[in-house]
Amino acid sequence: MAAQVVASPILVLVDDSPAFSVTVLEMLRTKYRVAAAFSDGTSALDKIGVLSPDIVILDISLGDLSGFEVARRLKLSKCPAKIIFLTMHEDTDFVSAARDVGASGYVFKSCLTVDLTKAIDTVFHGGRFQSGALSTKVR
């Protein structure tokens, strides 16, 4: 009997911190296919449609556009990619705003090594994920 092949999501990372992006990319590439990383929202929006990722991992605080604006524009363009915010903002108002723009996941940068792969796997399989004390997994 043939072994079942488990699909791995295609990811795009959008974060304006080069050092942080390198750390995240090193972690992600051990388990997932990373199509690209962008340091600003405009570049990401220009290329995401062509790359067709399953998941876009977005920082909220970007240099040009906010991650919320990038997510809003992706949804308006009917982009099927799911969104996970990866951010330093550990505040319920930000979590609510992320939900309002259609995010499926919200991961605190302070919980990166524990939560990001859990969030990716959960979101890729149709669930929702949120870091920290605000909640754990949300379905």
Rank of each mutant, 00 (worst) to 15 (best):
A3T: 11
I84M: 11
D91Y: 11
I10C: 08
V12K: 01
I48E: 09
L112A: 03
V70A: 02
D91V: 07
L11H: 09
L58Q: 06
L74E: 01
E90P: 06
R72F: 08
I120C: 07
T113S: 12
G132E: 08
A103W: 08
L25W: 04
V50S: 10
L45T: 02
A119M: 01
L112T: 10
K78D: 05
F108A: 13
D54C: 08
D15V: 01
R33M: 05
A44R: 00
S61N: 14
S110L: 09
Q130I: 15
F38E: 07
I120Q: 05
P53A: 04
I83N: 00
A44C: 12
V5H: 13
S131K: 07
L62Y: 05
D15C: 08
A44S: 11
V22D: 15
S66G: 10
V14Q: 02
Q130R: 15
C79T: 14
V123T: 02
A81V: 08
D16Q: 07
K78T: 01
F68G: 03
S61W: 12
G63F: 05
A71K: 06
P9D: 13
A2Y: 11
A36R: 11
L74V: 00
A3L: 14
C79K: 12
L86A: 03
K47I: 01
V24Y: 01
T117G: 02
V5R: 13
G127D: 06
C111I: 00
R72P: 04
V95N: 04
A103D: 08
S131C: 02
S96T: 12
A81N: 02
V5Q: 14
V56Y: 12
F85I: 07
G126K: 04
A35Q: 13
M1V: 13
S110P: 00
E90V: 01
D46Q: 15
F38M: 01
M1F: 13
R29M: 08
L62F: 07
A81T: 06
K137E: 09
S8A: 13
V138M: 09
A35K: 13
T30Y: 09
T23Y: 01
M1A: 14
K137F: 03
L28S: 07
R99H: 14
D40R: 01
D15E: 14
I83L: 03
T23S: 15
E26Q: 14
Q4Y: 12
F108N: 05
A3R: 13
R73H: 10
S77F: 01
D121M: 05
D15P: 02
K78A: 06
I60F: 09
V14S: 08
G49W: 09
G102Q: 10
P53L: 02
A97G: 05
G49K: 11
A36Q: 09
H125Y: 10
C79D: 15
S135F: 04
G41K: 03
V123L: 07
K75A: 11
L65S: 07
Y106S: 02
G127K: 01
T23W: 01
A97H: 11
I10M: 12
Q4G: 07
L11P: 03
D40L: 00
I57K: 00
F20Y: 15
V50Y: 08
L62I: 00
G105M: 12
S43F: 04
D46T: 10
V14H: 01
G132C: 08
C111R: 15
K118M: 07
R33N: 09
A133F: 10
A97Q: 15
A119R: 02
V70I: 05
I120N: 10
F20K: 08
